[in-house]
Design a protein around this nucleic acid. Sequence first.
DNA 1: TATGAATGAGAATTCATTCAT
DNA 2: GATGAATGAATTCTCATTCAT
Lengths: 211, 211, 211, 211
Amino acid sequence: MRRPVPPPGPKPNAKPARTRGGDKRERILAAAVKVFAKSGFHGTRVSEVAKAAGVADGTIYLYFRSKDELLVSLFEDRVEKLLAHMNVELTNLPDAPAKLRRVIEMQLGLLEGERDLAEVITVIIRQSSKLIKEYAAPKFGAYLDAIAQVVTEGQAAGDFRKDISPHLVARATFGALDGIALLWALGRAEQGALARSARQLSDVLLRGLQP
Amino acid sequence: MRRPVPPPGPKPNAKPARTRGGDKRERILAAAVKVFAKSGFHGTRVSEVAKAAGVADGTIYLYFRSKDELLVSLFEDRVEKLLAHMNVELTNLPDAPAKLRRVIEMQLGLLEGERDLAEVITVIIRQSSKLIKEYAAPKFGAYLDAIAQVVTEGQAAGDFRKDISPHLVARATFGALDGIALLWALGRAEQGALARSARQLSDVLLRGLQP
Amino acid sequence: MRRPVPPPGPKPNAKPARTRGGDKRERILAAAVKVFAKSGFHGTRVSEVAKAAGVADGTIYLYFRSKDELLVSLFEDRVEKLLAHMNVELTNLPDAPAKLRRVIEMQLGLLEGERDLAEVITVIIRQSSKLIKEYAAPKFGAYLDAIAQVVTEGQAAGDFRKDISPHLVARATFGALDGIALLWALGRAEQGALARSARQLSDVLLRGLQP
Amino acid sequence: MRRPVPPPGPKPNAKPARTRGGDKRERILAAAVKVFAKSGFHGTRVSEVAKAAGVADGTIYLYFRSKDELLVSLFEDRVEKLLAHMNVELTNLPDAPAKLRRVIEMQLGLLEGERDLAEVITVIIRQSSKLIKEYAAPKFGAYLDAIAQVVTEGQAAGDFRKDISPHLVARATFGALDGIALLWALGRAEQGALARSARQLSDVLLRGLQP
DNA sequence: TATGAATGAGAATTCATTCAT
DNA sequence: GATGAATGAATTCTCATTCAT
């Protein structure tokens, strides 16, 4: 954002030829998750990411074109893994209700396990509006589409009422989970409440979706 | 020497005695809603707010101590009005289900009517985490408490199942609405879909909450 | 959000590990002496110091925390060297009168040789009263103590009358020299008059101090 | 200093037609002495002077063209009175030594009685170098000339040695007194020490000046 | 005359990004 | 590839000064 005219030179970002042991890119991403979660995107200096990753400031720019792109890459990378994981998890479940319940458990589970990542995905990513609209939205959309797909399946199988938009359910579900997460993050809910919250939300949602 | 000891003198933010022609404070707030919504908090320069408000840069600081405080004031001011409005609206409704339905309609209605404000409340306010936790959270909490109160009423009256936490419902509902709004804001939903969304969400939520 | 919590990270002011070509810190100090002397502390922009030092504005802040600290560092650094130099010079002189005469010669000599530095030490440093009291005073006090020590020696050896406070003499002597310097700096005295002034002042002072 | 192009309009500063009871100009000067002494020239806002004087900010500009000119006016006004007072005091004294002793007593006496004014005269006035050189120096010079005149008298009467420059004595004396004052102001000397200091300095100086 | 809200030029400081080593 | 010292554009906030009332 600082130097507006983007140098028309060659592009990095296609990870450098696998350095021996040099999982630098991954170390930088992991460090970024941590510090972004702690201080927010705008509140974090690139040098802080570098320090947390144990690399020099300049090294960041060997792997990412800019601070903005670091965030986008982070988002894409993590959501991609999340999606892959979800697909595996849902495959063996018998029906749509079970899958929806699992989605909810997983997303809240993610929060307890990788709170920093959850923070980045739900909060940080919104801090750069042009960014999210242009880059992150597609990945994000893919996640939502996966949820909507479950709903569509359920409607086809007669498990869910058909007068509700699957995308609406997807978005509302994600939003509800996000809201619960925020409640939890802001410290207004007791520890361990997340599992209970998941169950309650699933109960309400599934009953509400009954045909 | 630039920012010496925080001047112990007279405090701004409580509008200057006699505002000459127009309530500058209000004009600044209105302008801030507009430009923050467009470019985000960090993406907006104070001079842009001033320009949009038709005042000089320095004038902002006669009414708000800093850019941060402008955001907080904006949030407090608007959410306060929102709450007052909501209390009036809900008073004459017969039962909790009707009230909950009305809350949903109102929040989504706000979006269509004052999209900028909605953007600021749901998105912008998250961009300064320390901020939201320290200043905005209480006001925000009051809004959620009002929703939770409706749920509690419904449970007492036997309209809602009792095995669900009212605060969870409040947070999840708010999140769901926020999520729908974001979907809408990101342009992935057709115009006018909000009314339909409100109805669908209400249907699902109320059925899900039945005892 | 601009000046968050004073970054608890690495501290500047202790020169960066390996200075590349040239000791930037010293160049900045030398430039600061020059421009502060010319325009005063408040009349000098940091960018002017940077320009005079041949570095970028930001570079100043790699070596000094603020403009204020630049002045303090300058003062400490220079007065320290001055003190060390004085200690060497006085060591081999036979008695207190000779030493006192030498102190006077040295201080006025400093003026002719490093007029800018003298200006900074005598004039500029007073421009930030809190500053001088908190940071500069100790260093300054050390210089005065050294002079007072000479007087005490002279009194013990029977060279000086004992009914005069050594610290008073130190302060008055410094002040007299400062005053003469100001007279000279303001251009009301002919060039080269400093040597004569030193002799005359020494004569008056030493005769005045005779037992 | 802020708005560089000086409006070529009509000039104020020739005190407004004597307002009934409206000694505003004097009130402003008195307030300026107080606040300048406390926070220094650059550390004082015009609004603070106005507040201390009990007038509106804009009123200052009805009597003084700028903040700078307020300082200069202050200096001129006060030093003029000082000079007049001194002339009266010295008239009836028998000889130059007595007069010189009286000058020293008076200047240190001023410090104990009107410490703020002393601070402004000795310290504050140096904070605007161009200013002092152009405006204040003459007044200041007049004060020094008066002292030098005493020395010249003494030399003519055979009371003082003739091999010392009267102006040097004047400047050195003033400087010595200034130095003592600073020592006192910095709190390194006990209260009430000023009278003793005056006597000691007079003793040393007069003995040093004996023919 | 007096007021004080409004103005807006000005300056310190930060921090993403570069590039010589 | 890796480093981190250096860069300098960008932005918030201050405060002397003005002028409509």
